[in-house]
Write a protein that binds this DNA or RNA. Sequence first.
DNA 1: CACAAAAACGAACGTTCGTGCTATTATATT
DNA 2: AATATAATAGCACGAACGTTCGTTTTTGTG
Lengths: 216, 216
Amino acid sequence: MPVVQAAKTESRPRKGVRTRESILRVAVDLASVEGLEGLTIGRLSDELGMSKSGLFAHFGSKEELQLATIEMARQIFVEHIVRPALAAPEGIGRLLKLCNGWLSHVEGHVFKGGCFFTAASFEFDSRSGPVRDAIADAMKSWLFILARAVEAAKKTRHLKASVNPEQFAFEIYSLAMGANWALHLLDDKTAMSKARLNILHRIQEVVTPSCPAIKL
Amino acid sequence: MPVVQAAKTESRPRKGVRTRESILRVAVDLASVEGLEGLTIGRLSDELGMSKSGLFAHFGSKEELQLATIEMARQIFVEHIVRPALAAPEGIGRLLKLCNGWLSHVEGHVFKGGCFFTAASFEFDSRSGPVRDAIADAMKSWLFILARAVEAAKKTRHLKASVNPEQFAFEIYSLAMGANWALHLLDDKTAMSKARLNILHRIQEVVTPSCPAIKL
DNA sequence: CACAAAAACGAACGTTCGTGCTATTATATT
DNA sequence: AATATAATAGCACGAACGTTCGTTTTTGTG
């Protein structure tokens, strides 16, 4: 009587989940360039040198593939931007690290085509369904993390008590999105440093006298 | 001997150009929702109750259709946002009218799916070719108009001399894009009024004492 | 090693994509 | 009203889409 074995701790994952993961890593990059709709099963299987049907079996539908791709992008994002920032102690330092991490990941090479979620946001913002919801969810989480960092920086008396965390997080993120836009669409190499100045300036407006010197 | 007749002034345009225009009006709305790649000739011809081939003949290729759609969107944008603002005299008033016009067109119904160009920007920002170039061109024009309005407001002594027009225009536009994003993806009804406050606040930072009271 | 389960494949489905043709209908001008 | 031209429709194409199926290969385990 064959029984599904509960995953042993530390044991090498089954072949299936390993391929699934490698598929999704490529899918994320492909989608960040071509969009989540432009992400095609045929194109993806070509890229990986495997058959369409073999790949397809891992997901069962295109929508499932899209959702899994979003989830993978989310993990990569957390790994590269959120987790490193959480290493810093709460306060202005962590907030700056979040901002800088986000800006770096846009110019850097975490995703091939700039920020995965920004692209996905504008692709699905006028649609409905599970994919759009998943993107919106991820974005709300990110804004929440940013807002919580602002709130914490208020608690450590680095930021003025008058600051509205959600509002402020949103402002900062808007400036960051603008930088992503200018860098990729307008090919403006100076966009990132300008954005760093913009954000720094905006933060500087609301720091308390007791806040240590900041830079990005 | 058939000769191509130069368009008589004030004469009703040929049937061809009339249908072409009505096609493009629908195309703009469709593309603002489904994206410029999602804009499909079959879907578009269905929407208009005409044949694929008949519609196709107007453009000769999908890329031409995309380019024409962008051009039409540009005209609509100018008509609804730029031209009304140019009615106001140079200075802070015109700048505010530009900002307000843009924000209104996002919540309003100029394009079905929010700002056409913002969506197109993020769809094509990692690609290359004529379509991407056309979008980038349109965006540069818009930023230029915005920056020129800032510059003019400096000349009229409404804004401080220290303001960098390009940089400032970019900041304002980033905040506006953020509002578009929050409204449509996060379905945040308060996004627009928040954005108005954000932008107003940012402008207020750089007005001169001689500048009249401003509001958005 | 044997053998069941999992994973990958190859071929084909019906549909839609963009794009050519040719024929027919509508328009505009003499 | 006749006629040349412009506009549209009809049909077909090859390719790619997402998806299904039955078969074969690979993998992990007793």
